[in-house]
Design a protein around this nucleic acid. Structure first.
Length: 468
RNA sequence: GGCGCUAUCGUCUAGGGGUUAGGACGGAUGGUUCUCAGCCAUCAAACCAGGGUUCGAUUCCCUGUAGCGCUACCA
């Protein structure tokens, strides 16, 4: 959701001014990046109708557009900075850095690199690196004075240089960090406007320092407010469905989602709340963005989506239904699980309804069914919660085999008989004690839906009151 | 802890030195109606606090408070 939000504003600015909207994949963290997550970004942006002019899949004048394929470029640029003494080699081990952090914490000092390796003579550092000693490249921030950086919406923002860390630019695995890769690519790809989330604002002095180090003209920076959970923390999957996939599955329309997102921190001059992407582009100006972090409010999204839905002709609605909820693909996933268990076509609707429903209710009866004999609602609540937040959260590959291994292993760790946990999960995920095989069912239901339902079920157990 | 950003109804926001501070979601009430939804109408609901500046501040400035973010060889 956050990516879509930022992409929308970037897209609108580019379209409004006849510019180019560039999609670059920042996959420099090998742990977190995968082909699957990249595919999800493509699919989500396409679904929303935010087409890019340059990108990994379509190429462009500044290819490649995947940072993982540009390593040589970053290494050259890092070397350039080192030769200009705008950066330096650092040989400190992770252990030393950790110890340093601990020490600083204990002494209530400011955190940050202490500059040990910065004192190394360049020739000495070069010798050690050439000898194969593991190292990173760090930014040499000035130790005194101020950096005054400009944000389009906030104006000049001042930072004491002493507060700004000597950021790692190139990791010991040879990959760049965001800071280096971003600055180098933005320059090379001729990016005029860096519109990104507010969480980057505190890194801006580092980035500006990098532009200076290279002798480059920095682009315009504009930091968007962060989307928030209802409790006002930065939006997260813990507290909100943030996957575009979830909303798509639930049958929200891309136009409605785009419209809603455009209302976050921005408003039409005439305060009109319903408008198309095209109208948004026409009217859009960065200057109208307001800075209070907007809470993502599903109920208002629902209202807006209802407006869009009711405007459709029955034919159009049918097409939507066929494209998403009742797609052949979806139905074909469900039918094999249901076929043996029904005798007539009409029985399908009763038996399979939970596959298509959104939230389930957990009345007193359902709560009783979730709690095994000899266990308390509290225990069951806690177990379901940990299952959702830890075990299932970490499960990237959502298939029946992986699910089964995961949940069985989890039951073992918790010391619960499999059957007891399975029943709790079954009732939580389907609302019934009888269902098709659990893991196939969970697989078809999808990660977002399952996690949402289990979380709700756990809540119901905790409060003891029926969740609606 | 340090640094930075932000602050108008519960939520999204408009506005801006003089306004009955406007709209939308949600809520309440009523109308339409066989029911529900929808639609329509009405109501309740806000300028974080304290100091300045000013004839006058919700608006400008300062301080405080609160929220958020950053403080990684994550982005």
């Amino acid at each position: 959701m956050g990516t879509a939000y930022v992409a929308l504003f970037n897209y609108a600015l580019a379209r409004k001014h006849g510019g180019r909207f560039v999609l670059r994949i920042e996959d420099t963290d090998r742990e977190r990046s995968s082909a699957a997550s990249e595919a999800m970004i493509f699919e989500a942006l396409r679904w929303l109708g935010l087409a890019w002019d340059e990108g990994p899949d379509i190429g462009g004048p500044h290819a490649p557009y995947r940072q993982s394929e540009r390593s040589a470029i970053y290494r050259e640029h890092a070397a350039q900075l080192v030769s200009r003494e705008a950066a330096y080699l650092c040989f400190c081990t992770r252990e030393r850095l950790e110890a340093l952090r601990e020490q600083q914490k204990a002494a209530k000092q400011n955190f940050g690199y202490d500059g040990l390796c910065r004192a190394l003579a360049p020739a000495e550092a070069a010798r050690r690196a050439a000898a194969g000693e593991a190292h990173v490249v760090r930014l040499a921030m000035p130790r005194s004075g101020q950096s005054v950086v400009r944000d389009l919406l906030r104006g000049d923002v001042a930072f004491d240089n002493a507060q700004v860390d000597d950021q790692v630019l190139l990791k010991s695995d040879g990959f760049p960090t965001y800071h280096l890769a971003n600055v180098v690519d933005d320059h090379l790809m001729e990016i005029s406007h860096v519109i990104r989330a507010e969480e980057w604002l505190s890194s801006l002095p580092k980035h500006v320092r990098l532009y200076e180090g290279f002798g480059w003209q920095p682009p315009v920076f504009c930091h968007l407010p962060l989307l928030r959970n209802a409790d006002r923390s930065k939006i997260s999957k813990r507290k909100n469905p943030v996957s575009l996939n979830f909303y798509r599955r639930a049958g929200y329309f891309p136009e409605a989602l785009v419209n809603y997102l455009a209302l976050m921190g921005w408003a039409m001059p005439d305060e009109r709340e319903e408008f198309t992407l095209e109208e948004f582009i026409q009217t859009f100006t960065l200057e109208r963005i307001s800075l209070g972090g907007p809470v993502f409010d599903v109920s208002k999204l629902g209202w807006l989506n209802g407006k869009y839905l009711r405007r459709l002709t029955p034919q159009e609605l049918l097409a939507r239904l066929r494209a998403e909820s009742f797609s052949d693909e979806r139905l074909l996933a469900v039918l094999p699980l249901v076929q043996e268990r029904i005798d007539t076509l009409e029985a399908f609707f009763d038996y399979a309804s939970f596959f298509f429903a959104g939230e389930l209710g957990y009345d007193a009866q359902a709560q009783k069914e979730m709690v095994p004999k000899g266990r308390t609602p509290g225990e069951t609540h806690k177990l379901l919660r940990v299952l959702v937040e830890e075990e299932l959260d970490a499960l990237v590959d959502w298939r029946k085999e992986t699910l089964e291994a995961s949940v069985r292993g989890f039951a073992d760790k918790a010391g619960w008989p499999h059957a007891e946990l399975f029943m709790a999960v079954r009732v939580a995920a389907t609302g019934r004690t009888a269902s098709p095989p659990l893991f196939e069912t969970l697989a078809v239901l999808g990660k977002e839906t399952v996690r949402r339902r289990l979380r709700r079920a756990a809540e119901a157990l905790k409060s003891g009151a029926p969740a609606k």
